[in-house]
Each structure stands twice: as structure tokens, then as C-alpha cells.
Nucleic acid binder design. Structure first.
Length: 268
DNA sequence: ATGGCCGGTGGAACCGGA
């Protein structure tokens, strides 16, 4: 079973690029972020015609996540538990039924910029950085539940987290950014250290492995990238992993997203 | 080049992204 994550940066603008990649890469499951579409306007027919069951959790203008699956899905839910007042569409999950059943969670973790801190270094309440860290605390709780289930499960998507300096071409430029600040990385490690396997780095320790290149300042041509799209897997899921790759070439195509797909292959 | 964007909204500039 091949499961991919891809921040598409707007489904309307990405119909051709997304369709071409789906045909070539042929993932069984695609977890998509930043669909930037309400559910009613999502061009589901295009992707159903490619053989996918389509589930969306959309929002007007921004955010929005989706699951495409060639295999049947069960128990599809959306919205990250822990804050009923949160109306941002950033979380969707489902059970994929292949040879084995896998619980897959697709997420679009808040960016968190601008970073606003009080004089004693606490995130300003109501600010975007506070929202990011609070969202990660909710993610921590959901992650604990997934582990407790002792089932194969994964959480994949745009985490907006640069885990280590080697995951950025120019780490010094990111020190004060919400993607790389100590509080963000600590929250990421706290989740991973519950017992999750980060799929990509468990198999590939090479430098210059990125999943995002800014549209600005020729970042792609200079390979000035960052790695912020990740898979975290429960032990039962990690045991099934056969491969994990970044589809870097997609960034050089016509009218690309600023992110590229990352995928895992599971024995499932 | 000491430079450099893109998508959505709404129907012009502005917001959000990372």
C-alpha cells in the first residue's frame, strides 16, 4: 500500500499537476493539504474518474484537507479534537482497508508566524504562534490515543516544522521562525518521543532532502529548501514500512505547488 | 542582478503562506 502526503496549495490551480502526479505515482491513498476550497466546490469528479474515493474537509479561501483513496475507507472523521471553537479545516482521518487496516490521519499544522512573545518569552495569547503550539498540544493528545490503540496508524501532512538544522538549506535564516524555533521543535519531539517513527529520516540520513521550496527569490533553482512534510508512524505501522521517498522532481514541473509529495510504501 | 512569488477573494488591492 502506497500512501502519499502532498500540500497542493489550491486544488483549482493544481488540477492538471495533481492529476498528472496521481496517474504517474499512483498512490493508493493521497492525503492532501491546502485544498483552499469548500466541499461543494471541490472538483471531485476529476479525481473520481482517476479511480479515487474522495473525502474533503474544506473551508473558504484557506486551509482545507482531503483524502483520496483507491481502497475503501471506513470511519472517516474530521476536525482535530480538543477545541470545539476551532473552525480551521486542518485534520481528517480514516481507516484504509487493504490487506491490513491502517488508520491514516492527514494534517495541515498551523504555520505560526508571526511569532509574538511576551517579555518573559511566552507566546502572546490569541496570536498565531500560540495557536500553533496549542494545536500541537491537541495533536499530542490524539497521538497518545493512536498509540494506545496498538493498531497500525500514521499521521502525515504539512507539519510546518523543520525538525533539525540539516532539514534546511540555510538553517540560520530560520532560527526565529515559527517553523524552527525551539518551542516548535520541542513540541514536535514531544510527540515523536511518545514512540513514533519519523518515516523519512528512519531510512535516509542524506543532506539536502527537502519537501518545500519558496516561490520567491529563485529558491528552487538554488535548492534553498526545507523539509516540513512528514510521516509519523506508530510502531505497528513502522513495522510494515518498505520504503519512503520524496517526489522532488514534481517541483520542477509546469505550474507546481511549492511543496512536493512524500510517500511511504507499507506491507499492507 | 544587489533582482526575482503565488493563490484566493472579488472584481482592486490585499491577505496568507513559509
Amino acid at each position: 500500500m502506497k500512501i502519499a502526503t502532498f500540500n497542493i496549495n489550491g486544488v483549482k490551480a493544481r488540477i492538471n499537476a495533481l492529476s498528472d502526479w496521481l496517474k504517474e505515482a499512483s498512490p493508493d491513498v493521497a492525503l492532501l493539504q491546502e485544498i483552499k476550497s469548500v466541499d461543494e466546490a471541490f472538483p471531485r469528479d476529476v479525481f473520481e474518474d482517476l479511480g479515487y474515493n474522495v473525502y474533503t474537509h474544506g473551508q473558504k479561501g484557506f486551509n482545507g484537507v482531503a483524502i483520496f483513496s483507491k481502497l475503501p475507507l471506513e470511519d472517516v472523521t474530521h476536525g482535530l479534537p480538543g477545541d470545539d471553537s476551532d473552525e480551521q479545516a486542518r485534520w481528517i482521518e480514516a481507516t484504509v482497508v487493504g490487506e491490513k487496516a491502517i488508520r491514516v490521519c492527514g494534517l495541515y499544522l498551523p504555520n505560526g508566524n508571526p511569532v509574538e512573545l511576551t517579555e518573559d518569552g511566552q507566546p502572546v495569547e490569541g496570536g498565531k504562534y500560540a495557536y500553533k503550539l496549542a494545536w500541537m498540544e491537541r495533536l499530542y493528545k490524539r497521538a497518545q490515543e493512536l498509540l494506545a490503540s496498538e493498531e497500525p496508524a500514521l499521521m502525515a501532512g504539512d507539519y510546518n516544522i523543520i525538525p533539525q538544522a540539516e532539514d534546511a538549506a540555510k538553517p540560520d535564516g530560520w532560527r526565529e521562525d515559527a517553523l524552527f524555533r525551539p518551542e516548535s521543535r520541542a513540541a514536535w519531539r514531544k510527540i515523536q518521543n511518545l514512540g513514533f517513527t519519523e518515516a523519512f529520516r528512519s531510512r535516509n540520513q542524506n543532506p539536502e532532502q527537502y519537501s518545500f521550496w519558496d516561490y520567491q527569490a529563485g529558491a528552487w533553482n538554488k535548492n534553498n529548501g526545507i523539509r516540513i512534510d512528514h510521516f509519523l508512524m506508530t510502531p505497528q505501522c513502522a513495522d510494515l514500512m518498505e520504503d519512503c521517498q520524496i517526489d522532488k522532481d514534481i517541483r520542477g514541473r509546469e505550474k507546481p505547488s511549492d511543496h512536493v509529495p512524500v510517500w511511504v510504501k507499507l506491507n499492507a
